[in-house]
């Protein structure tokens, strides 16, 4: 896909999202704040003693983890907006994309990145608010290398989450409605990925499984990297696992797409 075309799709999608400004701001500000207040209250009920450490996190560290989980989670999941791939296959509106001078899934990815642009602005604002109003954990030291590694891990997380979602949505070539399949993935990835609770709080016996599954690399891994909790050699290993999952999803996606296109009638169901 040509860079100019990619940029055009990206810009249109960002503008489209901003056309419902009230929705957009209400959703982000109130939704993020409501989520944050809830986890703050929940963990306040667990950190009952001063200086208490839970799974290596102080209370302020836990708060920072959730601030990042809420805000960066929006970047990973594409602001929580559905991809519509399944819907377009189901309705037959995929046909018009097949005439476009670029692969369908690249167009969808450009749209998804476009949806995220306004979220980046909000992310900067809300992180600024955190920096001003909330105490920073003593154990977290923001180093340039960790931030750089975190940003790379975040980009990878976005691509990985997209690839998993696409593979599931492509099931629409066979199933009537894949909406519930995607929601199922959201539930599982949030718990096993570290968006609901840091993965370090899981029992030790679970850690190898969590490290092998792709979900950790969507949420917990980039957040812990940014917080400086992932040593460089572990980061390389994590990125390797992440890339392997991404590669597998791409191969799977390509195979499902090819088989699905043989079935696709273009008239919708």
């Amino acid at each position: 896909m040509r860079a100019r075309l990619f940029l055009n799709v990206f810009t249109i999608e960002a503008r489209k999202l901003m056309s419902y400004r009230a929705d957009f701001w209400i959703n982000t500000l109130v939704g993020s704040l409501a989520n944050f207040v809830l986890v703050y209250i929940l963990w306040s009920a667990i950190y009952l003693e001063p200086g208490q450490i839970v799974a290596g996190y102080s209370f302020d560290g836990m708060v920072l983890y959730y601030v990042l989980a809420i805000l960066l989670g929006r970047l990973v999941t594409g602001s929580g907006k559905p991809l519509d791939v399944g819907q377009e296959i189901y309705e037959g509106s995929l046909s018009r994309y097949l005439l476009f001078p670029a692969p369908y899934l690249s167009i969808k990815y450009a749209q998804r990145l476009g949806m995220m642009l306004p979220s980046l602005i909000q992310l900067a604002m809300l992180l600024g608010a955190y920096w001003i109003f909330l105490p920073r954990p003593a154990e977290v030291e923001f180093k340039a290398l960790a931030v750089l590694q975190g940003v790379v891990a975040l980009c990878m997380a976005n691509a990985l989450y997209y690839s998993i979602t696409v593979v599931l949505q492509l099931a629409a070539f066979w199933a009537d409605n894949v909406w519930s399949l995607v929601i199922m993935m959201v539930f599982v990835s949030r718990l096993l990925g570290g968006a609901m609770v840091p993965l370090a709080t899981f029992p030790d016996a679970w850690q190898p499984l969590l490290a092998a599954l792709p979900f950790r690399y969507c949420f917990g891994f980039p957040i812990d990297t940014l917080m400086g909790r992932v040593p460089t050699h572990e980061w390389f290993f994590g990125m390797g696992v992440s890339l392997a999952w991404f590669g597998l999803m791409c191969v799977l996606g390509r195979a499902v797409w090819s088989r699905g296109m043989l079935r696709y009638s273009g008239v919708g169901i």
Binding site: I26, G31, A34
Partner: peptide, 19 residues
């Protein structure tokens, strides 16, 4: 004209009922 924003806000608030 669009209930998306408020609907998402409600979804965020319902988590309070789950604790």
């Amino acid at each position: 004209h669009s209930a998306r924003g408020l609907s998402d806000v409600f979804a965020s608030f319902t988590k309070y009922a789950e604790r």
